[in-house]
């Protein structure tokens, strides 16, 4: 945190130079440069894996999806058009691979029930549980959230993507990202309260 009351994201920090470098990496990967592939993984592998694991909740499955994702990057690097930052492009691939893997299971990566939830323009409700929760309680509660809530929280708070980039990954408007985030955080507070995780 850089100051009181500020919320920052601590995922990958990307500046213009690094974005260009990421693009260069993809160009090299398209030319079958294994070193470039390794470098891309070094930069983003953990974030992508963490996001997948956050959504699917099963480590073995997350590892398989990560493998699928990186293979898709290797095969499809030449399809990258530079219309999004590389990290969001990779995460979008991971999301599609997750959806493919989860097809037929109960898990739904995108839950449309959140479409009706609107973010309030005012400061949020009295999220008492969240106000006094400890870190371990929060992580335990996040694991109990619906996949779509875990997904949007992970993307917005854990990857370093901006909200428009999150919207790009989720293929929804930015406003919907905001409302989904607000719903996710309210759900987090409810879980903390209902499960007594912070008592």
């Amino acid at each position: 945190m850089s100051g009181p009351g500020q919320v920052t994201t601590h995922g990958a920090t990307r500046d213009d130079a690094q974005r260009a470098s990421d693009c260069d990496l993809l160009r090299l990967i398209a030319l079958r440069d294994e070193g470039a592939m390794a470098e891309l993984y070094r930069r983003y592998g953990r974030i992508v894996f963490g996001q997948i694991l956050l959504v699917v909740g099963e480590r073995t499955l997350a590892e398989e999806i990560l493998q699928d994702t990186m293979l898709a990057v290797w095969r499809g690097a030449d399809s990258y058009r530079g219309e999004s930052v590389v990290l969001s492009w990779v995460i979008a691939i991971a999301r599609r691979r997750t959806r493919d893997r989860m097809r037929g299971r109960r898990l739904r990566v995108v839950d449309e029930t959140f479409a009706g939830e609107q973010a309030s323009p005012d400061p949020g409700p009295e999220l008492v549980a969240l106000d006094r929760a400890e870190l371990a309680e929060v992580t335990a509660a996040i694991r109990l959230l619906a996949p779509a809530h875990r997904e949007v929280l992970g993307l917005a708070l854990g990857t370093g993507l901006s909200l428009p980039e999150v919207a790009d990954v989720l293929e929804i408007p930015v406003g919907t990202v905001k409302s989904r985030l607000a719903a996710a955080r309210n759900a987090l507070d409810r879980v903390l309260t209902e499960k007594g995780l912070n008592r």
Partner: peptide, 28 residues
């Protein structure tokens, strides 16, 4: 705005949990 500071602190708490789960995920 005390209300916004509280709101920011709540997001900070949520972000802490998410980051613990993502950035703190051990290597496979």
């Amino acid at each position: 705005c005390a209300g916004c500071r509280t709101e920011a602190a709540r997001w900070e708490t949520a972000a802490g949990g998410v980051l613990e789960l993502i950035a703190g995920t051990p290597e496979p």
